[in-house]
């Protein structure tokens, strides 16, 4: 069991005063690989946004146990506007802006951005426009942008949706490797329950305003799946 990094204590999440997720209690520990699952509209992205610090809680406390916790965030690919004429390298460089600071050029750190692209397997596409890349390549560019900031926690929102099976596998292999070899804490939102269940050790399951979390074996029981998804899922 790793040290707790981030903790939700009776947190209420929502927008404009309207509660979507009441009373969330959650502990994220160092080196966790957590899958956040649930039916559409259950509040998976809302929870991830709160973990990322983008959404402030309506009530309750989010405790960050580690000072200056570096968070890497990979948003849903479909939310990004592809009309921006930005290259893969320019987008990866955005992950360095905090480190670079105000009034300083990112040029000095460009090697790090190239290295991040190499790590995710995208060497040689630095100068290509983001909009001209394939779905899988775009996803990797966004992942490289998160990795270049050297995060301790990596948050990913539906990173494998719309990818073909081979790209899904390659992405999940890579995330497992980051988790095992670098000890990076990973939280992944997906509605592809089977893919997530294969890799994650812990599961946070959402549905009907309820949030339960725990070990994969406890959470993904047929009873719980029926409760949260309404229909029996899984084969075994």
């Amino acid at each position: 069991m790793g040290k707790p990094t981030l903790e939700f204590r009776d947190v209420y999440l929502g927008y404009r005063g309207e509660v979507i997720l009441p009373s969330v209690n959650l502990v994220i520990e160092e080196g966790d690989f957590i899958g956040i699952v649930g039916p559409n509209g259950a509040g998976k992205t809302t929870l991830l946004r709160a973990i990322a610090g983008i959404l402030k809680p309506l009530k309750g406390e989010i405790i960050i146990h580690k000072p200056n916790l570096a968070i890497g965030y990979v948003p849903q690919r479909s939310l990004l506007d592809e009309t921006y004429p930005l290259t893969a390298l320019e987008i990866v460089c955005m992950g360095l802006y905090r480190k670079v600071g105000l009034l300083r050029s990112v040029r000095k750190y460009i090697g790090k951005a190239r290295e991040a692209l190499r790590v995710v397997g995208l060497e040689g596409i630095e100068g290509k426009l983001y909009r001209e890349l394939s779905g899988g390549q775009k996803q990797k560019v966004l992942l490289a942008r998160a990795l270049v900031s050297e995060p301790e926690i990596l948050l990913l929102d539906e990173p494998i949706t719309d990818l073909d099976v081979a790209s899904q596998k390659s992405m999940m292999d890579f995330l497992s490797q980051l988790n095992k070899e670098r000890g990076m804490t990973i939280l992944l939102v997906s509605h592809l329950l089977d893919v997530v269940a294969e890799r994650a050790e812990k599961i946070v399951m959402l549905g009907d305003g309820r949030v339960v979390s725990g070990k994969k074996e406890e959470i993904l029981s047929p009873q719980m799946l029926k409760e949260f998804f309404g229909i029996p899922l899984g084969g075994d």
Partner: peptide
């Protein structure tokens, strides 16, 4: 302008 959410999450 391009991606406010991620920029915010990453400290901007």
């Amino acid at each position: 302008s391009f991606d406010a959410e991620t920029s915010r999450a990453m400290g901007l």
